[in-house]
């Protein structure tokens, strides 16, 4: 008989996210993972710039708002001076894979001992649906109305594959939040990343495939199918690196 209680790190008033937006799902399971490792009193949440900044009015723990793209730099500065705190940055694909690409790769390469959780929904949600580094080939956005054309716009960035090729990162995994199994696996993965962090193992990275009903111009239910037939085949979920598993 499963029991399911609301996590303590999120408010009991509705989030600012659109109906069916999986940012909500993501922050919910992060809150559950924070509870699971007993850090809800002291966890440090680094906020990016984008839809996930709306967590400012939804998350119940300590928060620091970073400039666009700089969450992992802010996390570096904070964690280096507070090594005992659980620190995570939760970023969207514009924040992490475009303007913040140097920051995330460098933080990962330095093996900074914090967790970055990356919500990949292939668009810039907050600003109205522009092309993101992860926008799929052929996917239409407000800045590539005919669909992303690789000749002039390149290919969607695979962050897990990039980061797992670095030496320092300890745990790198990708999950899709459009199915119950995906959500459960993601929660386990985030909890594992937090445990590794608390054991001082170094940099952990979780990529969460999410949606954007508003800017994909699809109903919430339709985004689930879109992810199954488009997103997931390209951004393949799985554990890309787990130094702890080889022990």
């Amino acid at each position: 008989m499963a029991e399911y209680k609301r996590a303590s790190s999120i408010l009991s008033t509705p989030s600012g996210f659109c109906p069916g937006c999986m940012h909500s799902t993501a922050i919910k399971i992060i809150a559950e993972a924070v509870d699971a490792v007993g850090q809800s009193e002291t966890a440090m949440h680094i906020l990016p710039v984008g839809c996930s900044t709306l967590n400012l009015a939804y998350w119940k723990g300590d928060m620091i708002g970073a400039a666009h793209g700089r969450a992992s730099a802010v996390a570096t500065g904070f964690k280096r001076c507070a090594p005992d705190r659980l620190v995570f940055a939760y970023q969207g694909d514009g924040d992490l894979a475009a303007i913040g690409l140097a920051e995330i790769m460098s933080a990962a390469n330095r093996g900074e001992n914090f967790t970055v959780i990356f919500a990949n929904n292939q668009t810039y949600g907050m600003t109205g649906g522009q092309m993101a580094p992860t926008t799929l080939v052929g996917q239409k956005t407000t800045t590539c109305r005919e669909g992303r054309n690789p000749e002039s716009m390149g290919y969607p960035l695979k962050m897990c594959e990039l980061i797992s090729n670095l030496e320092a990162p300890y745990f790198v995994a990708r999950y899709a939040l459009n199915t119950p199994k995906g959500v459960i696996d993601a929660r386990k993965g985030i909890t594992k990343a937090f445990k590794y962090q608390l054991e001082g193992k170094g940099f952990t990275f979780i990529e969460l495939l999410t949606n954007c009903p508003t800017n994909w111009k699809l109903s919430p239910l339709a985004t689930i199918d879109y992810m199954n037939s488009n997103t997931i085949p390209y951004f393949v979920p799985g554990v890309y690196k787990d130094k702890g598993a080889q022990l």
């Binding site: 620091i64 400039a67 700089r70 802010v74 500065g77 904070f78 280096r80 001076c81 920051e103 460098s106």
Partner: peptide, 26 residues
């Protein structure tokens, strides 16, 4: 104390920002 050579000045000022938020003279 802690010292980080950032990947850029852009990142470095945000590292100072993070440390300062945590109450450290940065």
């Amino acid at each position: 104390g802690a010292f980080v050579q950032g990947e850029s000045e852009v990142a470095s000022i945000s590292m100072v920002y993070g440390a300062s938020a945590g109450g450290t003279r940065a």
